Amino acid sequence: METLNFKTNIKCSGCIAAVTPYLNDIEQVDGWNVDINSPDKILTVQTTDNRVGELVQQAVERAGYRAEPIPRP
């Protein structure tokens, strides 16, 4: 299982509801969560395929938000 993190501009539960159908449509995504209390509004994605980062970004953008990958340390 891989974990990918993204800095987003998803601010509230309504925003999360807007991105939900797009993120849930990505087959390789096993789960995801947005920490709206974090200053960077971190989207954490669990996946079996770490190459889905671009698909996640596109899904968030289709919902009208931004997602920038956070490089792994």
Rank of each mutant, 00 (worst) to 15 (best):
A18H: 12
V45E: 02
A18T: 11
K7F: 05
N24A: 10
N37T: 13
R51T: 15
T3Q: 12
L43E: 00
D25F: 10
P21Y: 11
G14T: 06
P71K: 14
Q58F: 05
N33D: 12
E61K: 11
L43V: 02
V60F: 00
K7R: 15
R72S: 14
T47D: 03
V56L: 03
G31W: 07
C12T: 06
E68D: 09
V56S: 00
R66K: 15
N50F: 07
D30G: 13
E27M: 12
G64C: 08
V45C: 02
R62V: 08
G14C: 07
P73D: 12
A67C: 14
T47H: 03
A63H: 05
I36A: 03
K11M: 13
G31Y: 07
N9M: 05
V29H: 00
A18R: 12
T20L: 05
K41L: 08
D49E: 10
N9R: 04
S38H: 15
E54D: 12
I70T: 09
A17K: 14
N5G: 03
T20N: 05
K11H: 13
C15N: 07
D25K: 15
T44L: 02
E61I: 07
Q28D: 14
N24S: 11
I42V: 13
Y22I: 05
G31S: 10
Q46W: 11
R62L: 14
I16W: 03
V52M: 05
V56P: 00
V45R: 00
P73Q: 11
C12A: 05
C12V: 03
R66V: 13
P73I: 10
V29A: 01
V52P: 03
V60Q: 01
N37I: 06
G53P: 07
R62D: 15
D35G: 00
M1N: 11
Q58E: 15
I70G: 04
I42H: 01
T47G: 04
E2P: 11
E61A: 11
G53R: 07
K41G: 02
L55I: 11
Q28P: 08
V60D: 01
N24D: 14
L55A: 15
A17V: 04
R72M: 14
D25H: 12
I70D: 05
N37G: 14
P71R: 15
R72I: 13
D30T: 14
N50A: 11
Q57W: 08
L43N: 02
L23V: 09
G14V: 06
V45A: 02
N50Q: 12
P71L: 13
T47Q: 05
N33W: 07
S13R: 13
G64P: 04
R72F: 10
R66F: 11
N5A: 09
N9Q: 06
R72L: 13
V52H: 02
D40L: 09
E27F: 09
R66A: 10
D30L: 13
K41T: 04
T3C: 03
E61L: 07
N5S: 09
C12L: 05
L55H: 15
L55G: 07
N5Y: 04
Y65C: 03
A63R: 04
Q46M: 15
E54Q: 14
